[in-house]
Amino acid sequence: MGYIDAHTHITFKEAINEGILNFAIKEWGAPIDKILMTVEQVVRMLDDASIDYVGVMAFPVRKLSGAKEDYALKVINTVKEYPDRFAVIGGVEVNEVTTEETKYWLEKQYEAGISALKIHPPHWWVKPNAYRPEEGGLKQLELVYQFAEDHNLPVYIHTGTSSFTKARNKYGDPILVDDVAVDFPKLTIIMAHIGRPNWVPTAFQLIRIRPNIYGDLSSIPPKRILEYIPRLTEISDKLIYGSDYPGPGVHDIKKNLQDFLQTPIPNETKTKITTETPRKILKPLSKTK
């Protein structure tokens, strides 16, 4: 049984558009051969790294790459011959669509078999708790959380800063996720990046006290993981491994995993983070129906 990388931005030659391609080249700094990979090439790469399946972010980001809600459907269609190797994470850019459009895209993506939904506050310029009356009452966002809770879909919420040109980092504070955890107690929340670099203590505490909040370790350099989270073992049951490949600084998916496996933390903790917990909360396409 192999490992699970629960947070990647793998793109596929068969599904990518010009906006995503240009964004990846400019903002990720990734070599073009890491961006324009065929599905077969990606599968061979995963085999070589002993990775059973990966979470692929396929959520809309109009402001950065022009990707819209149909991108998740394109990715699912692209990887359909390998449903056990990919978990596709979709989403609805809630402050760019109507409530009816939100309902439509949630149903379409769910019918197609998405594994999770993604909210990206710094890239969308929206607070993760913007559905609350005191935060503007954004009905579309409430619909996303309610749909995910009703359909047992985990929701990734980006926390921490983003170095991308159009990102608004004031929206990355993980304390804003606390409202979501309280208002949707049956919703599984995956706090992406655990607030790195400057909000890690806040994210750590929320993961400790809120039973429905988990954290993914993506984009934190594995060799510095205990520098970022010294008390990591205290929340080992609530963490999942992610690489952020091929995002900034992570251009080798196998090396990133091997670096994590070599960190000085207990082996049982590594097993929980890289296999046991992600299998419980993030299902590949073959297991979503």
Rank of each mutant, 00 (worst) to 15 (best):
M1L: 12
Y3C: 01
Y3G: 02
H9C: 02
K13T: 09
E14P: 09
E18G: 07
G19N: 01
F23V: 02
K26L: 14
A30F: 10
P31E: 09
I32A: 12
K34C: 09
T38V: 13
V42Y: 02
L46D: 07
D47C: 10
D48M: 10
A49T: 01
M57E: 04
M57N: 05
A58I: 04
G66I: 02
Y82A: 05
R85H: 13
V94P: 06
E96L: 08
Y104S: 11
W105F: 14
E107A: 13
A116W: 03
I119S: 05
H120R: 06
P122W: 04
E135H: 15
G136P: 00
L138T: 13
F147V: 05
A148E: 05
D150T: 14
N152G: 13
L153S: 05
P154E: 09
T161D: 14
S163L: 14
K170R: 15
P174E: 02
D178V: 11
D178H: 12
A181V: 01
D183G: 11
K186D: 14
I189W: 04
M191W: 08
G195C: 09
P197E: 10
N198H: 14
A203W: 02
L206Q: 15
I209Q: 11
P211E: 08
P211R: 06
D216V: 02
L217C: 06
E227F: 10
P230T: 00
L232W: 00
L239N: 07
Y241P: 00
G242T: 11
S243W: 03
V250L: 07
H251S: 09
P264S: 07
I265Q: 03
N267R: 09
N267T: 11
L282P: 00
K289Q: 15
K289D: 10
